[in-house]
Design a protein around this nucleic acid. Structure first.
Length: 419
DNA sequence: TCTGGGGTCCTAGGACCC
DNA sequence: TCTGGGGTCCTAGGACCC
């Protein structure tokens, strides 16, 4: 049993917008998310498409995030709709602005589009007497300003706030729950299955089950050395988290540096290898554009290809000086695909990710000795400017117009979702 | 009835260097 | 005959998150 008096104790809130995409889509239609059965699916035209969000009444019928479109019963009282990503982002922005009325930006952390953390340790006294009272205030304000219901977990650290949210607040009628260090044995330890716990998925759960670990309490009391031996660093985290320990503090994270940029796509149909070139160019253009906008260079280019049968292969290549040239990304990826992908098999997924990102200011001048690179750089810059002025589809390389290009069909999508 | 898209972080083995 | 050790980087593949 840990001596929690030695642990950093803060007032952290984890806020989750209930069925976020589905709720916003209800509001857009003038419907009440708490009484309407509505699902947002990635693409209503694809039967196997995943459910991105479902309202609570639909969830009661067994449909949840990750279900497939064909699992939803066809009933006249169930709405099935495509995402409106642009609007979702606008709502998320409005909610962020509300949160920032109560904390300094360094005490705020956006975890995902519908989830964020705030550390109220320093500013609570300005707004409320107790943290529970503040949570209610925040919840009410968000609802009154946007129509979105949220759930709030309160904890002595970031982890406990997240667990309070996932295990209790989301299921309580009040939508608010608090877990402190002294609650760990009574409220965390009885929990099972393990895969409900943050950071443990089914596979890890099975491995733990084999060792006779079924509850969080089992995990907390299992000899730490064995976890470390068998699971490495993750084992250490499993042990600490099961004991409610997490020393991270939001404002100490510093500026968040995103270590990678990626673009992946499940294709609308099976593709032959030769048909992939146009897709690669589209992806490279988007990635190159994102790199150049941030004045970054990528040193490592990684390409993953998924065959129709689900098998995946990947290859990465590191370029010492780094690049932000669309053409360079295309040539590295295409060379790999052409040489290493089996031309007799059909392709269903394509993903390119850029890592080892470095600021462009660190670029070696030698790169510019190559006049081809210089020319490509000018072409990219010109295309970027046209796109900024007239939109993403204003200019495209010739190949994107061919049969296998998807950029034109996708121009109305954000992150693969409909605007 | 084939598939969301965007991420982060870890590991094991190998190459290479001193 | 039978192998140095430590550090760093790269690669391919997983696990997990929303």
């Amino acid at each position: 049993m840990y001596n929690y008096h030695l642990c950093t104790k803060r007032l952290v809130l984890c806020i989750d917008q209930k069925s976020f995409f589905a709720s916003v889509s209800c509001i857009l239609k003038g419907l009440d998310p708490l009484t309407t059965k509505l699902a947002v699916v990635a693409d209503t035209k694809r039967k196997g498409s995943v459910v991105l969000a479902a309202t609570p009444p639909l969830k009661q019928l067994g449909i949840k995030t990750g279900s497939r479109l064909f699992e939803i019963p066809s009933r006249s009282d169930i709405y099935i709709i495509n995402p409106s990503m642009k609007t979702y982002l606008t709502y998320a922005q409005r909610i962020t602005e509300i949160a920032l009325r109560y904390v300094a930006p360094e005490d705020f952390h956006q975890y995902s589009v519908d989830e964020f953390f705030i550390d109220m340790t320093d500013s609570l006294h300005l707004f409320s007497k107790t943290i529970e009272e503040f949570a209610q205030l925040l919840k009410t304000t968000i609802y009154e300003d946007t129509g979105i219901h949220c759930a709030i977990g309160i904890g002595d650290n970031v982890l406990l706030s997240k667990l309070a949210l996932d295990f209790e607040a989301k299921h309580h009628p009040t939508g608010v729950a608090r877990i402190q260090y002294h609650d760990v044995p009574s409220r965390l330890w009885p929990l099972k299955p393990l895969s409900d716990f943050w950071g443990i998925n089914k596979r890890t759960e099975r491995k733990l089950n084999k060792r006779g670990i079924f509850t969080i309490g089992d995990l907390a009391q299992y000899p730490y050395e064995y976890l470390k031996r068998d699971f490495g660093i993750i084992g250490v985290d499993l042990h600490l988290h099961a004991n409610g320990i997490d020393e991270s503090i939001i404002r100490e994270k510093g500026e968040i540096f995103k270590p990678s940029i990626s673009k992946s796509q499940i294709l609308m149909r099976d593709y032959k290898v030769e048909e992939l070139k146009a897709i690669i160019i589209e992806h490279a253009e988007v990635l190159g554009y994102r790199l150049r906008r941030k004045s970054l260079l990528a040193r490592t280019i990684k390409c993953s290809i998924g065959y129709s049968d689900g098998e995946k292969i990947a290859k990465q290549q590191t370029i010492n000086d780094g690049t932000d040239l669309t053409e360079k990304i295309v040539s590295v990826v295409w060379k790999y695909i052409y040489q290493h992908v089996d031309h007799h098999r059909m392709i269903r997924t394509v993903s390119i990710s850029l890592t080892g990102l470095i600021p462009k200011s660190e670029q070696q001048m030698t790169l510019f000795d190559d006049s081809t690179d210089l020319k490509q750089g000018i072409i990219d810059q010109t295309m970027d400017r046209i796109k900024e002025k007239y939109g993403q589809t204003a200019v495209m390389r010739g190949t994107a117009y061919g049969q296998s290009g998807t950029a034109l069909e996708r121009k109305n999508l954000i992150a693969g979702h409909k605007k």
